[in-house]
Write a protein that binds this DNA or RNA. Structure first.
Lengths: 218, 218
DNA sequence: ACCTGAACACCGTTCAAGT
DNA sequence: ACCTGAACACCGTTCAAGT
């Protein structure tokens, strides 16, 4: 029931956010500028400020839009465990596709997006027979793991050289790890061999299972 | 055995990093500028570039210095479980005291600081009777949780209003949560009551125990 | 009500010139 | 070898002026 804009190409909060997401995804975080954004929208930088308070709010809104999509809906007839895995994996994939969300989420904590994540991860806990007093506890641990893992993965995605493929990149890091000082980094040296060939999503889900294993233990 | 500087107040990488940490801690991330830093060191901005490649490297070096301190040494005669808790809590406290580390760690993944964390968290795994093939797996999960939780906590610390104390701030958020739309956020509404009065460090350690519980489960 | 674009107050970084 | 500081190429944000 919103009043219609006079022109189809009129500026709007939604169009600004959509354009920002496109720039962030295709050109990277550093490329998002009020000038480039204004150029994309065929207007001046000042015009954007009529619809959006500032850059921080713009980034928060862009993050929220994608997180809302990732946590929304979902077919519900599944075990609680399975539902949590589904939400977590959805978030992982969203952050992987839009790596800039990773740094965003760990910077603005009580924002709407974080609340959506807590809600989506927490709702299945009732059916998991976790006592209500522990819900806050447990959902915090789950969310911390999900956000931490996703942020790490996003950072990796951001820093991966464009021209080399994943396997050779991982092998290069593994080789680097294997050459570390034995006295200072014995553990990292030893696990270097396990680095190439691992699957990020599998690894992520294994961590979820670890946490869930701890939850349903007693 | 490094050759001595001629003047005691000569610029050096160490002095620059120390000055940067002081500014970051006392004035916040936004206040760290090559100009303010240069002013603090009584020199011009260009001088800093002789010792440090750029701002990114400076932040990485500052982070590494503090993480090295947090993960270094530690009395060793304790159970593996206890050693992991100790390392994790040390990191938590360090990030709590220097919140800017939080965002730093989730932005530069394969940097030295992350490797120190992996090493410190992973070394006790041998004695925890975790099979070697799972070490990479398990240490990744632990590190993700630690970094995620610490980043969240750091973000909270950064955004807390200066003049209000913790209790009233938490109560305000709890009230806000309790007023959310029941249809959209039933879970968050319900756990709102558990928000005030919780202890961040306890909550953090409980999460560690959850993950460790999952590890030693089978 | 909404848009324009010049202008303000900054940044990180470079570089010729000094010692 | 190391330092100086002006200058370059940008930023986010504001605001008088327009429609």
């Amino acid at each position: 029931m919103g009043r219609p804009s006079r022109r189809a190409d009129a500026l709007s909060r939604e169009r600004i956010i959509a354009a920002a997401i496109t720039i962030l995804d295709t050109e990277g975080e550093r490329a998002l500028t009020f000038r480039t954004l204004a150029a994309t929208l065929a207007t001046g930088p000042g015009a954007i400020y009529w619809h959006v308070a500032n850059k921080k709010e713009l980034l928060a809104a862009a993050t929220d839009a994608l997180v809302a999509e990732a946590t929304g809906a979902g077919p519900t007839r599944a075990t609680p465990h399975e539902r949590i895995r589904r939400v977590a994996l959805g978030l992982f994939d969203t952050i992987d596709a839009h790596p800039w969300i990773g740094s965003q989420l760990s910077q603005e904590p009580w924002q709407l997006a974080s609340m959506r994540i807590v809600e989506a991860l927490g709702r299945p806990l009732d059916d998991l027979e976790v006592p209500a007093e522990r819900h806050f506890h447990v959902v915090t641990a789950l969310a911390s793991y999900v956000l931490g893992a996703a942020a790490q993965n996003a950072a990796n995605a951001r820093h991966a050289p464009r021209d080399t493929d994943r396997d050779t990149a991982l092998s290069a890091i593994a080789r680097q790890w294997a050459e570390l000082d034995e006295a200072e980094f014995p553990f990292v040296r030893r696990i270097a061999a396990q680095l190439p060939g691992h699957d990020d999503r599998e690894q992520f889900l294994a961590g979820i299972d670890l946490v869930l294993g701890g939850i349903t233990r007693e």
